[in-house]
């Protein structure tokens, strides 16, 4: 077991099953205190399930998890004092005003009435909601709701903050506001676990990213490490004759030193590359030397789909149980 002091969130072999679906299938995480960890994964990867277990809303079927040094199952109340949770929907009372919401939540954290009111005022100020403080939340914009939601999660300045797709459905301006708020929290020492489907978001906010799919971590590292693992850029070669696909793929694999992938229908061969221009030049030369006619050669960034495909492909190669797509 890793030391509880160095890590704010630790999970070991976490499993959760819904009927036939393994929502979590042996999730291992260790998030150093004071850092932002991005949980990056496609829809259905198990991100929300993981967050719900860590926030004591759900019991794991197997494995264990510690948050801020407390076990999420046996010390649930202690954990609840140390966390904030921002879920996929702004979880605030729509009928009450922003201030009434914050005072109510403060009281439920067992602050005295006076302390709850003072804390509400501070948070309203911090999240620029003072002007709207006494309006019903129904009348708030999406971004304002999100900010209030965030404020409500920060009443006790939690040691660990969970953000489950905090910017999904927000316009770019509101998204920037949320990012800004998260950054300033981290400066104050809060550990953040953030789930997202967007590589860009994880890249901007997280010190380290855990890519999850099928309920477990399939790759982990700093954004730079992941990108170099994925290969950053990608070269696509469209051949005129489908019969040349296999030969082309073999050729490119040997030139670039990375496994090239074939998309038959598009008559395309794709390969991740690190040294953009040099790779492009050598691929073009190799094709020319071998007498393969290319319709088009493109250098581009991989789409998120390709990133996942590549990582899940790697993971599948390492574990024979899973079938390769």
């Amino acid at each position: 077991m890793v030391s509880a002091h160095a890590y704010a969130v630790v999970t070991e072999g976490l499993r959760k099953r819904y009927g036939d679906v393994m929502a979590l299938n042996g999730l291992d995480l260790a998030v150093p205190a004071g850092t932002v960890r991005g949980l990056l994964g496609p829809n259905g990867a198990g991100k929300t399930t993981a967050v719900r277990i860590l926030a004591t809303l759900l019991r794991p079927d197997a494995g264990r998890a510690e948050v801020a040094g407390c076990d999420v199952v046996t010390q649930a109340v202690e954990v609840r004092y140390r966390i904030g949770l921002v879920g996929q929907y702004a979880a605030v009372d729509e009928v009450l005003s922003g201030r009434q919401n914050l005072v109510m939540f403060g009281r439920l954290y067992h602050l005295s009435p006076r302390a709850a009111r003072r804390r509400a005022d501070e948070l309203l100020e911090q999240f620029r909601l003072t002007d709207a403080a006494d309006r019903a939340v129904k009348e708030y914009s999406g971004g304002m709701r999100r900010r209030l939601d965030l404020a409500a999660s920060l009443i006790l300045t939690p040691a660990v903050l969970f953000l489950d797709e905090p910017t999904t459905g927000l316009d770019p301006r509101a998204r920037d506001e949320v990012w800004e708020a998260v950054r300033s929290l981290v400066n104050e020492g809060t550990t953040v676990l953030l789930t997202t489907q967007y590589l860009e978001e994880a890249d901007r906010l997280a010190h380290e990213i855990s890519v999850i799919d099928g309920g477990r971590v399939i790759a982990e590292g700093t954004p730079e490490q992941l990108k170099s693992k994925i290969g950053g850029d990608q070269i696509d070669v469209m051949v005129s004759d489908a019969a040349h696909l296999d030969h082309t793929a073999g050729l490119i694999t040997s030139v670039v030193g990375q496994q090239a992938q074939i998309a038959h229908r598009e008559r395309r061969v794709s390969v991740p590359v690190t040294d953009r221009v040099a790779a492009l030049t050598s691929v073009a030369r190799a094709l020319h030397d071998a007498g393969i006619e290319a319709e088009d050669i493109v250098l581009r960034r991989p789409t998120l789909d390709e990133v996942f495909l590549r990582l899940t492909g790697d993971a599948a190669a390492n574990s024979p149980k899973e079938k390769v797509a």
Binding site: T56, L57, G87, Q88
Partner: peptide, 17 residues
């Protein structure tokens, strides 16, 4: 449906409340 119940359950309040 709005997640308010989840917020309550993630807080250290009495579960009967």
């Amino acid at each position: 449906s709005r997640g308010v119940t989840d917020r309550f359950r993630s807080m250290p309040m009495a579960s009967s409340a």
